[in-house]
Design a binder for these strands. Structure first.
Length: 884
RNA sequence: GGGAGCUUAGCUCAGCUGGUUCAGAGCAUCUGCCUUACAAGCAGAGGGUCACUGGUUCGAACCCAGUAGCUCCCACCA
């Protein structure tokens, strides 16, 4: 059977993914094994795969596949999030294209379109994940608006309401005029923006009417504002009561320019005297601080903005204009009216909607809130006492800070796509909270038996999407409707959660709260926080910057395995990663390397009669493999995935390919003995297992080759069990390091002396280290192209010599060795050793070192001294011989 | 404004409780090889004042203090 020269991922990926699916290897049902569970951070149902998902899901898949190969019952639950704002925006956009406006539709009609849209486009991202190799249990795919999940949302709402933790209130909320909904504080991103600070004159009322010009009368009050378009909503002018400059204003009133509405001057310590002019216009409807000021001073609230950010008739002027257009226009009007003192450039923080990037408008509104205080406490404890580990742990501080300063959660959203708030309003202005309309009516009739269904109106709003995703680890196992079912009892709490640090509070913290509140248990044990995927210049990858490669293109080019390796190569836990396509290239190159190693072994003919000349090499690699496995295991235990991958990479490339295979490879067209052959195949199979979590497709493809013997249908790499770490002979490993050093030095010598690799050399060793060179003769001869290798008791004349460990090696060399250069080389080495010895002796002769250092450290230093002295003796001897 | 973190080779990062003359890996670079597994390769080499300044210590990349630069999080000054 001929085999392709290079690995071609495309031909294997689809094949094996369907094979895995068909054979149910991703499926999990509770059994007697230990469970290992991950719930996917549900991507937006509207989403398409981006680099962040690639990283995230590669990590999850590596963890899940490893758990599976360690005999655990691994279950990775996939699903999507209904993402109210994002999805509704897309549906509205789609309708607009069809010439339909949302406001012409009833809620039911709109939702029909939305579901239609979801069925058509939702879940693309899940299909994309399959291309990456994600081994999710697809039969368990959930959607945050699935019936049971939605029901859980409603039930928990009722539960928390009954506990008094959900309440309704007027609050200044963050209004997104584009999404036309409230967003939570956490969804507001503050950015520094260049703005203008407008200085506007407000004329005092009640001064000498006859002296109507200000230069004769009292000067106007000048306020500084970044939002001149809101002056029509002003309710007062506020000054600091201690401000000497404005004592004369106490008790006065002023007129708002342009509309000449009279407003009072009020006094409040809130005003900073040295900012702006020390006079503040108070606009309770459009600024949180002003609102609070207004509350203190009983000021009216005049809301001049519509939901879409345009001015309403209360503004009296510029009605219908967008707030930003109005700002520009009013500046002109003020200028014309002669009341614009000056305009300054000004930098300040402005809130933007995370979802729509619109400038957030503070707005007073009736909203539903969820109290956080009581829930935050236990949720904080889980992390502080280590029941939940954050990886890396630097996030613990951030987490604590947030949890200690948590504010109530605005859970209502003025949208239709989502779970409608289970509140029904009565004609009396009261409301009832109930699971559905019938229940609501019953509740209402308790208040007054006269009420009929027609008297009830359900709240129009839906709950925040996070109010459903915080239940995710429980709701995917139907733990609300059926809190004692086999799945939830078996899989919950889950093991690892892999997500981005940006949503530590949005999601992770709230899941912990929900876990505690509804199950009395943390929802997971470890939270692995991935970094942000950035480009080489350190910019966050984003659609708008256009600096993000299409993940599917990458898979097309480098293969899923190559991309997976590429992602992990540059992703230290918790740190951002500077992604570059070259990492994927390296990943693909690695796949190819493995492919070619396989090709080599595959090509061997076995001669049953041959003896095994490779016992040492085989023993060495077996040990080296165990050593590497130990390191890999340790790195996984600490979630150092890139390190574990790098260990694997070096094990395969350096130890297996560059050393082991070169040691045992038979000469061209020569057969191999059966013992070496069998051992090598065994090694290869074990290597495939270790590689599998990182490179599932390639390893599965090779696994099924006849080289490894007959495989039954279910004998697949994906469900193979990882090799058990055997004993490690560290003496052997150390000796082989010396042998490798000898070989490298020979190669190096050839280079410097310009001896061709093809020219065989002789080698002699004068040994005192106790290394049994006899057993390594074959390896050294093979890899160093040595025709004769012997032990000697005396120096060899006319030879190049070098040291490895404390042993001296000689390579006879016909050409005259330059005594001057040789002396210089030896002298340099001697200097080094002397310096080294001095340092070591310095320690050993230091009483405090001897008193304080650990015994192992002292022993190591003593060994160093002995070795250095032995080497020095040899060098001295050589120097003497050369009569330097 | 408050808090957290980072700074080690050209790049991306290791360096676990201070203890090899401790400075390491991968990639990139340079040199020599088309040696029938792999040129997506092989063999070899070069490359760093561990941000800076002090301190603690027998010993500091590692601990402490300060300085500079970068990043992130939180925060209602018009």
């Amino acid at each position: 059977m001929s085999i392709a020269k290079t690995y071609i991922p495309k031909e294997t990926e689809e094949k094996w993914y369907s094979y895995w699916l068909q054979h149910g290897f991703f499926k999990s049902v509770p059994d007697e094994r230990e469970p290992y569970t991950i719930v996917i951070p549900p991507p937006n149902v509207t989403g398409v795969l981006h680099m962040g998902h690639m990283l995230n899901n590669t990590i999850q898949d590596v963890l899940v596949r490893r758990a599976r190969m360690k005999g655990k019952n691994a279950c990775w639950v996939p699903g999507t999030d209904h993402a109210s704002i994002a999805t509704e925006a897309k549906v509205v956009a789609m309708l607009k294209e069809r010439g339909i406006s949302k406001k012409d539709l009833t809620r039911e009609e709109f939702l029909t379109y939305a579901w239609e849209w979801k069925e058509k486009y939702g879940g693309i991202i899940l299909e994309q994940l399959k291309k990456l190799g994600a081994s999710c249990d697809w039969d368990r795919t959930k959607f945050t608006m699935d019936e049971n999940l939605s029901e859980a949302v409603i039930d928990t709402f009722i539960h928390l309401y009954k506990k008094g933790w959900i309440y309704r209130g007027i609050r200044m909320i963050n209004w997104d005029p584009q999404g036309k909904t409230a967003v939570s504080d956490e969804e507001v991103i503050r950015k520094e923006v260049n703005q203008k600070l407008y200085y506007i004159k407000y004329h005092l009322v009640g001064t000498d009417v006859t002296k109507s010009t200000y230069h004769e009368g009292e000067p106007p009050v000048i306020i500084a504002t970044t939002r001149p378009e809101t002056i029509m909503a002003d309710a007062a002018i506020c000054i600091n009561p201690n401000d000497e400059r404005y004592k004369h204003l106490h008790g006065r009133t002023v007129n708002i320019p342009l509309i000449n509405r009279e407003i009072p001057v009020i006094l409040d310590n809130y005003v900073t005297m040295d900012f702006g002019t020390g006079c503040l216009k108070v606009t309770p409807a459009h600024d949180l601080n002003d609102y609070e000021l207004g509350q203190r001073h009983n000021l009216p609230v005049i809301d001049i903005l519509n939901d879409d950010g345009t001015l309403n008739e209360k503004a009296q002027i510029l009605v219908g204009e967008d707030r930003f257009a109005a700002r520009k226009k009013i500046a002109v009007l003020l200028e014309e009216a002669g009341v614009l003192e000056k305009v300054e450039e000004y930098k300040s923080q402005v809130g933007f909607s995370e979802r729509t990037n619109a400038v957030i408008e503070p707005k007073l509104s009736m909203q539903w809130f969820c109290k956080m205080g009581e829930m935050a406490k236990p949720a904080l404890d889980y992390v502080l006492n280590g029941e939940i580990k954050l990886i890396p742990d630097k996030f613990i501080n951030t987490y604590r800070h947030w949890m200690e300063n948590v504010r109530d959660w605005n859970i209502s959203r003025q949208l239709w796509w989502g779970q409608q708030i289970p509140a029904w309003y009565l004609p009396t202005g009261e409301f009832v909270i109930a699971k559905n309309a019938e229940e609501a009516l019953k509740e209402a009739q308790l208040k007054n038996p006269e009420f009929t269904a027609a008297d009830l109106t359900q709240d129009e709003d839906v709950v925040d999407t996070w109010f459903s995703s915080w239940l995710w680890p429980i709701s995917v196992f139907d733990g609300f409707k059926d809190p004692n079912n086999a799945d939830i009892n078996y899989y919950y709490p889950t093991n690892d959660l892999v997500t981005a640090p940006e949503i530590l509070f949005f999601w992770v913290a709230r899941m912990i709260m929900a876990g505690h509140e509804f199950r009395g248990e943390a929802p997971f044990k470890n939270v692995y926080l991935t970094g942000i995927v950035r480009d080489k210049q350190g910019r966050k990858m984003s659609k708008s910057l256009g600096n993000s490669p299409d993940p599917l293109d990458l898979i097309e080019t480098y293969g899923a395995d190559g991309v997976r390796v590429g992602m992990l190569l540059c992703s230290p836990a918790g740190n951002d990663l500077m992604f570059d396509e070259s990492y994927c290239k390296q990943g693909a190159g690695f796949a190819n390397k493995i492919w070619n190693a396989f090709k080599l072994v595959k090509g061997w003919e076995v001669d049953e009669t041959l003896p095994n000349p490779n016992a040492v090499a085989i023993e060495w690699f077996g040990n080296r493999f165990n050593q590497a496995l130990t390191e890999i295991e340790a790195n996984f235990a600490q979630y150092r995935l890139s390190e574990a991958l790098m260990d694997t990479y070096k094990l395969v490339w350096d130890d297996f390919c560059a050393w082991y295979l070169e040691m045992i490879k038979p000469a061209y067209q020569h057969p191999i003995d059966k013992v070496t052959y069998a051992a090598t195949i065994q090694f290869f199979e074990n290597i495939l297992k270790v590689l599998h979590p990182f490179m599932p497709f390639l390893t599965e493809e090779l696994w099924h080759d006849e080289l490894f013997g007959e495989r039954t249908e279910n004998d697949c790499c994906i469900v193979a069990q990882l090799p058990v770490i055997g004993e490690i002979n560290s003496r052997l490993l150390a000796d082989v390091e010396v042998i490798k050093d000898v070989i490298t030095t020979i190669r190096n010598t050839r280079k410097t002396k310009q001896i061709s690799d093809k020219e065989p050399l002789e080698l002699f060793v004068r040994s005192n280290s106790g290394i049994n060179y006899g057993s390594y003769q074959a390896i050294i001869s093979r890899l160093g192209n040595i025709s004769k290798f012997d032990t000697v008791n005396d120096k060899v004349e006319g030879a190049i010599n070098f040291l490895a460990s404390t042993d001296e090696f000689y390579v006879p060399f016909e050409e005259e060795i330059d005594p001057v250069a040789e002396c210089a080389r030896l002298a340099k080495e001697k200097d080094y050793l002397l310096g080294f010895l001095k340092a070591v002796n310095g320690k050993l002769n230091n009483e405090r070192f001897m008193a304080n250092a650990k015994p192992e450290v002292i022993a190591a230093e003593q060994k160093k001294r002995a070795d250095a002295e032995a080497k020095l003796a040899i060098i001295e001897e050589n120097l003497k011989a050369l009569a330097c």
